[in-house]
């Protein structure tokens, strides 16, 4: 028995095909909510949804201003679930829509399935210590889903059922400026090899040896939470962990990394994990395929030389 109705909401057009493919496997009717004008909705017509509703966000407006209108639309079904892409804006939309539907929001869920007529899913809790299996008990429910959660289906015919959402933005936020970020975006989720820097590194300048190693390995450089958040040696978007980026490279080379549970939760889908740490009892070695118990300041120069 499939679910009756799922609404897919995304603040980025690129997320629709995967989310709609996943929703279509779960529910009889899938509605995509697109932020933009009719042209944007038409551009998304082939995303796999049965129908598309578009919210014509003005230049000064923000997608979450449409949360009440979206919830009113969802409530036209006696029971329905809402899947939102797991971005910062996606979670802002999800949180508001959830309140207007009188439902909780569960973020970054996976393994979505229909169970006894309800939407069930898994999510990581306690910083990676456990996975919870959860099922909604309310007629409506909201989840956010990250990229790579659903299998892409066969391409579906483009829908012609496109309409503007009823209702207007309510209590809109007043944005006074918007700037593109200047820092270069590193996409660790797509990286095949990653040098993962931990707090065993003595000082910021020593990042240079790690960058050198990454360069000979054709790898990206990432790190653990304290290196980004406490030391601020690397940007926050390259720290891996349950609360950071979750990666799945062929090789993850952990340098001076202790292996706290919340970090392991972000790297344990790597094909091979190799660790260098002078502390023999560091938990990272339990999660490593190959480990070297030794001083990274002796190991790295030798390693770079041999790999060059």
């Amino acid at each position: 028995m499939a679910l009756t109705s799922i609404y897919v909401i995304s603040d980025t057009a690129a997320a629709f095909p995967e989310l709609c493919a996943g929703a279509k496997q779960l529910a009889g009717s899938v509605t995509a909510i697109v932020f933009g004008d009719l042209a944007a909705a038409e551009a998304a017509a082939g995303c796999g949804a049965d129908r598309i509703l578009f919210c014509p966000v003005s230049d000064a407006g923000s997608p979450e201003d449409y949360a009440a209108a979206i919830a009113a639309e969802v409530k036209k079904d006696a029971s329905a679930y809402v899947i939102v892409n797991n971005t910062i804006l996606g979670r802002a939309i999800a949180g508001k829509v959830g309140v207007y539907l009188d439902a909780a929001v569960f973020s970054n869920v996976s393994e979505l399935a229909e169970e006894n007529g309800r939407l069930a899913f898994s999510r990581t809790v306690y910083g990676g210590a456990a996975a919870r299996r959860i099922a909604f008990t309310t007629p409506y429910g909201v989840v956010t889903v990250g990229g790579g959660t659903f299998e892409m289906g066969a391409p579906l015919p483009a829908t012609t059922q496109i309409a503007q959402i009823e209702g207007e933005p309510a209590a809109p936020l007043n944005r006074i400026s918007r700037d593109e970020k200047r820092e270069t975006a590193v996409n660790l989720t797509a990286a095949r090899r990653i040098v993962d820097v931990g707090r065993g590194l003595a000082k910021e300048e020593d990042l240079e040896i790690c960058r050198k190693l990454a360069s000979v390995l054709d790898a990206e450089v990432g790190c653990s939470r304290p290196v980004a958040e406490n030391n601020k040696w690397l940007p926050k978007n390259v720290y891996m962990g349950i609360t950071g980026v979750q990666v799945k490279p062929d090789l993850l080379l952990a340098i001076g990394l202790s292996g706290q549970i919340q970090h392991i939760g972000g790297i344990n889908k790597s094909r091979f994990i190799v660790a260098v740490n002078k502390d023999k009892s560091a938990p990272i070695f339990k999660s490593a395929d190959f480990g070297l118990v030794g001083d990274l300041y002796k190991v790295l120069p030798l390693l770079i030389e041999k790999l060059s």
Binding site: K280, D289, G291, G294, L303
Partner: peptide
């Protein structure tokens, strides 16, 4: 995980 752990930071270990 294979947990092939060796001790040492000399040339042989590397």
């Amino acid at each position: 995980r294979r947990q092939e752990i060796i001790e040492g930071d000399n040339e042989e270990a590397v």
